[in-house]
Design a protein around this nucleic acid. Structure first.
Length: 901
RNA sequence: GGACCCUUAGCUCAGUUGGUUAGAGCGUUUCCUUGACAUGGAAAAGGUCACUGGUUCGAGUCCAGUAGGGUCCACCA
């Protein structure tokens, strides 16, 4: 057996094991009847993406769940893949073209798409490669891409079916227009930002009463040429006589009416509102109500057009705003201009202000809204943390139709063909469904020469919302059978960020309910049973990590520095349920240190001798009972944590068990036991038993190092792999396994160790306070009763070793020796040197003070009649025992103080 | 305007149905390279649990309010 090196070097180990796992095809789900299944679909990262800390957290958690499920003997499937990310990808490729002074229009649609596919071929798998570095155990043979032929067909089929069911329509409506990407966006792709600008107070002169004005406030004077009316509240006394009269539009001068509409807020500004139906949603609605014309003064790219008048035409909208203000000022129409902060919608992707714009688009009336609400409200789908279900339900309550068309080229082209010669913008809703005029199908019309296909593509999310079932072969029955749709749908758990709860989670639920297993109960049609929402990773200052801020560390650098396991351990340990996470590199370093500690504990085991024989219950001492009891406890704790998705609590429990219970205590006491042939064999067997279980429990969190150590310690036979063939035992199975080896955990024995630990702690403290930690020639005296003395005798060898003492003797010692009261009797330290009596007295007095306070508090509680009569017996008993223990300790401390005098 | 979250040690955070003396990691102080590990060991210092009330025998934990910070939703020009 090769010797384990003195410190853990992850790079080689990780690379080698990932290759070995791949070679063994160990990530592939092996269909096996009778096994419970556990499935996860990855939130598909954008093909343009590179690994971020958010991905690290998210995918580590998925990998933990999948690996744990595998070790529990489940048929575990983790489906990977990428999203074509319409706007993002198209933007990236267009940017490349621009470097060569080209635009996509220069290339034309077909050539451009070829370029995108080329790009995807080169760069599209980078992020999946990075996930492998992290250790992700996805079934790579099932990698999907939302633009794959099969996937695309499914997306189009969904469109065709929803159209057929009347959920999809084409309509001219106000949309969020991105002047940078030149496409419509859904409401979810618009983020509100506070923008500092100006509020312009502009006066409009009455046409029939020169010198009389109506004043309005606006942030967008450049849209004044698009004004078609002023609106006031019909009950506003200030404007009582004005409704029905006309005013002069101050730019691109023309008379426009004053109308009354109750949508106007009387409290804001002057209470009068300019109406620009082409450039504001509310204005558009008011315009509709009053049958006002629409004057669109903007081009698609955000520049002003001829409708804006000769002074503004051709200017960009921001330059136009300045120019418009100047024009107003020159004309005496600008009453004043004040600094103003308002909320402006921005394109999430392009980071420019969006324009409300009236265009023809395709819309989806969401299917299964009520069912989608019920699925979460009634618990068919559980959210962790549960509070996100409120956010989800609130969104569904107020759901708006989804604008699913995008004026892009990269994406699924809408499967609609218009008969040549017809004007598609004049089709009535009935004509839209007339097959002689509009053809909607998967494969297109039989006589394509007579038709023109819709140019628009679908919103990216209109493909990703199908992810949980299209990745399992839907809708092709043969593919579904082959890919195990029956076994793996609904998937077990979805791990994602709360930021895409509307974009993705809610929509997947509706899609799943609409398209899978028609007619079957809701619990069979949902796409997943659990949704775990991760926190958002922030930098040390609490800011969101982003490319533009450059405050996100490169996960690959962290892997190089701390190992993938170190990174995984660190990120999980700082990611409690439901809270945002402040990233600290020190925690990743902590992860690396944990791995090194684990490595060395196993190294120590290996140096102690070959794999041990069976546990020998006859040789069990209190430490053996104690460590095995803790092992069972940790196993229980971990089971609970997995049930509640409390990853950081789980890893914390493992940390404490391994570091404090196993290394700091059990391994240390082992050193004495290993020197004794009588206890050596059993001690090694206990170590092996614990390490074996520990590696199984740790493996989902830190897969590489555990696999390596599993092999180094010879725990797997032949070609067995921990990750594939290992089986973690439930706490009950663990107890049973111990029983079958004749081991029954003795709780009293295990408890007795706690007193020894306290004793040890006090002994060390007595020494440490005098700077004697290294000296081994000290003697301790203990005034122990016979039971305590027996306990100490039984542990003598290891106590001497661990406390660093030459002797522990029964007796009082000298009165001026430093002393401490322990559960096993009063301990005195004979350091063989003069003692600072004053210092000793001060120390004991401080201790006495604490004890006295505590005694008083406990006594007061017990003297409270209400407490005695109402508190549960266990609590009461605990308090009584506490009081008596404290009193004993206090009395002994008093005696020590007295003697010192 | 509506909803939700946070405020606990110098820092970042745990604290699971209310119940002994509120924990961890990092940092700090002292000591230690004894044959797993200095990426380590031992010991220690450090907290009126944001504030004010309330419920309760008992509150970091439950309720109400206040202050500060954050997130999401919403058409206020």
């Amino acid at each position: 057996m090769p010797e384990i090196t003195t410190s853990y070097e992850p790079a080689q180990v990780e690379q080698a094991w990932y290759a070995a796992w791949m070679a063994a095809n160990a990530f592939a789900a092996q269909p096996a009847e009778g096994r419970e299944s556990y499935s996860i679909v990855i939130p598909p990262p954008n093909v343009t993406g590179v690994l971020t800390m958010g991905h690290v957290l998210n995918n580590t958690l998925q990998d933990i769940l999948i690996r744990r499920a595998r070790l529990e003997g489940k048929e575990a499937l983790w489906i990977p893949g990428t999203d074509h990310a319409g706007i993002a990808t198209q933007t990236v490729v267009e940017r490349e073209l621009r470097k060569a002074k080209q635009s996509r229009r220069d290339l034309g649609r077909e050539k451009f798409l070829e370029r995108v596919w080329e790009w995807r071929g080169e760069k599209g798998n980078i992020i999946l490669e990075q996930l492998r570095r992290l250790g992700a155990s996805c079934d790579w043979s099932r990698t999907h891409f939302t633009m794959d032929p099969g996937y695309s067909r499914a997306v189009l089929q969904v469109f065709v079916e929803l159209f057929g069911r009347g959920h999809i329509y084409r309509g001219k409506r106000m949309v969020n227009w991105c002047p940078a990407s030149l496409t419509a966006l859904s409401d979810e792709e618009v983020i509100m930002k506070e923008v500092k600008g100006a509020l312009y107070h502009v006066r409009y002169e009455l046409t029939d009463e020169p010198g009389r004005f109506v004043q309005v406030a606006t942030t967008r004077p450049e849209t004044i040429p698009g004004d078609v009316a002023l609106a006031v509240h019909p009950q506003d006394p200030r404007y009582a006589g004005l409704i029905g009269r006309t005013v002069w539009r101050p730019i691109h001068r023309a008379p426009i009416p004053i109308i009354g509409d109750s949508a106007v807020d009387r409290e804001f500004g002057s209470g009068a509102l300019k109406i620009t139906p082409a450039h504001d949603k509310v204005d558009f609605e008011i315009g509709q109500r009053h049958r006002l014309p629409v004057i669109d003064v903007l081009n698609a790219d955000g520049t002003l057009n001829a409708e804006a008048g000769p002074e503004l035409a051709g200017l960009d909208r921001f330059a136009g705003r300045k120019r418009a203000a100047e024009l107003l000022r020159a004309a005496g129409s600008l009453v004043r201009e004040e600094p103003y902060t308002n909320n402006v919608g921005y394109s999430e992707r392009a980071d420019v202000p969006i324009e409300p714009r009236l265009t023809w688009q395709w819309w989806l009336r969401y299917p299964r809204v009520a069912e989608a609400k019920a699925a979460v409200r009634d618990g068919n789908i559980a959210f962790f943390p549960d509070r996100w279900s409120k956010v989800y339900l609130h969104w569904l309550e107020n759901i708006q139709d989804w604008c699913i068309s995008r004026q892009l080229w990269w994406g699924h082209r809408i499967p609609v063909w218009y008969r040549k010669g017809i004007d598609r913008d004049r089709l009535s809703p009935e004509e839209l469904r007339d097959p002689a005029k509009v053809h909607v199908s998967l494969d297109g019309p039989a006589d394509p020469e007579n038709w023109e296909q819709e140019e628009d593509v679908l919103d990216t999310w209109a493909s990703s919302w199908l992810w949980p079932f299209v990745t399992l072969g839907w809708p092709d029955p043969a593919a579904m059978k082959e890919q195990g749709f029956d076994r793996f749908y609904p998937t077990t758990t979805l791990v994602t960020g709360p930021d895409i709860i509307f974009f993705w989670v809610a929509r997947m639920i509706m899609a799943g309910l609409e398209f899978t297993r028609p007619g079957e109960p809701i619990g069979r049609r949902i796409p997943f049973r659990n949704v775990y929402f991760t926190g958002i990773i922030r930098d040390a200052q609490g800011r969101k990590m982003s490319k533009s801020l450059g405050n996100s560390p490169d996960p690959l650098d962290l892997i190089a520095k701390y190992g993938a396991d170190g990174l995984r351990f660190g990120i999980v340990s700082i990611a409690p349920q439901g809270q945002d996470i402040r990233f600290q590199e020190e925690r990743i370093e902590g992860g690396k240190n944990f791995c090194n500690k684990l490595w060395n504990a196993c190294r120590f085991r290996q140096m102690s001798g070959p794999p041990a024989a069976e546990l020998d219950p006859r040789r069990f001492d209190a430490d053996d009972h104690s460590i095995l009891r803790r092992l069972v406890q940790v196993s229980e704790e971990l089971q609970r944590c997995f049930g509640e998705f409390e990853f950081s609590a789980g890893i914390q429990a493992l940390y404490t068990f391994f570091w404090n219970d196993f290394c700091d205590w059990y391994v240390e006491v082992s050193k004495a036991k290993l020197a004794d042939e009588a206890t050596r064999g059993n001690c090694l067997a206990v170590q092996d038993f614990v390490l074996r279980q520990l590696l199984l429990l740790l493996h989902p969190f830190i897969p590489f190092i555990t696999e390596e150590l599993w092999k180094q310690l010879g725990f797997g036979a032949g070609a067995e792999l921990l990750m594939r063939d290992g089986r973690v035992q439930s706490p009950d199975q663990l107890v049973q396994a111990l029983k079958s080896k004749g081991v029954e955990i003795d709780r009293q024995a295990a408890d007795s160790i706690e007193a020894v630990k306290a004793f040890m702690s006090q002994a060390r403290a007595l020494k440490a306070e005098r700077g004697l930690a290294s000296r081994r020639d000290v003697r301790f005296f203990v005034s122990a009763d016979s039971a305590a003395w027996a306990n100490l005798e039984a542990n003598r060898t290891k106590l001497l070793r661990m406390a660093g003492a030459a002797a522990i003797e029964r007796g009082e010692g000298a009165e001026d020796m430093p002393a401490a009261v322990t559960p096993l009797g009063t301990l005195r330290l004979d350091a063989g040197a003069a003692v600072d009596k004053g210092a000793e007295k001060a120390r004991l007095l401080k201790e006495r003070e604490k004890l006295a306070q505590h005694v008083a508090g406990t006594r007061a509680r017990l003297e409270n009649q209400a407490f005695v009569s109402k508190a549960p017996p266990a609590v009461l008993e605990g308090a009584r025992k506490q009081l008596s223990d404290l009193q004993t300790k206090l009395a002994e401390t008093d005696r020590l103080l007295h003697n010192l005098n």
